Amino acid sequence: MLIVMAGLPGAGKSTVAERLGRTLPAPVVSVDPIEAAMWRAGVARDQPTGLAAYVVAEAVADGMLALGQDVIIDAVNAVEPARRQWRSLAERRGVPVAFIEVVCSDPRVHRQRLEHRSRDVEGFDEPSWQAVQQRQTEFEPWTEYRLVLDSIADLDSNLAEALEFLSKYGS
Rank of each mutant, 00 (worst) to 15 (best):
V76F: 08
W142P: 12
R84W: 15
P33V: 13
R113S: 05
S128K: 11
A90K: 10
G94F: 09
P27Q: 10
L65M: 06
V56F: 03
S118I: 11
P81Y: 07
A162G: 06
A37I: 00
M38Q: 10
A36K: 08
A26P: 02
Q134T: 14
A41E: 04
A160Q: 12
A59D: 11
D62K: 14
V76P: 05
L149K: 01
M1Y: 00
Q133T: 14
G68R: 04
A53V: 08
R108A: 14
A11Y: 00
R83V: 10
P27M: 02
G12D: 07
G68A: 06
V148Y: 03
E122V: 15
F99K: 08
P141V: 10
E18S: 13
Q133W: 11
L149Y: 04
E140C: 09
S105P: 10
E115G: 11
Q133N: 12
L65F: 00
G94V: 07
T23W: 02
R19I: 06
N158K: 04
G170T: 04
P81W: 11
P48F: 06
V102R: 01
E138C: 04
D106N: 15
P33L: 11
S88E: 15
I152A: 07
G94C: 03
D74W: 00
V132A: 12
Q134W: 10
G63S: 10
P81M: 02
G42M: 05
Q136K: 15
P27C: 03
F124W: 15
A75L: 04
I72V: 11
E161I: 01
P9M: 08
V76Y: 06
V95Q: 00
G170R: 07
K168E: 02
R135T: 13
Q130N: 12
G63N: 14
T49R: 07
V95Y: 03
A98L: 02
V4D: 04
F139R: 07
A6F: 02
T137L: 14
A36P: 01
F99V: 06
S30R: 15
R84F: 13
L149I: 12
A59P: 08
M64F: 15
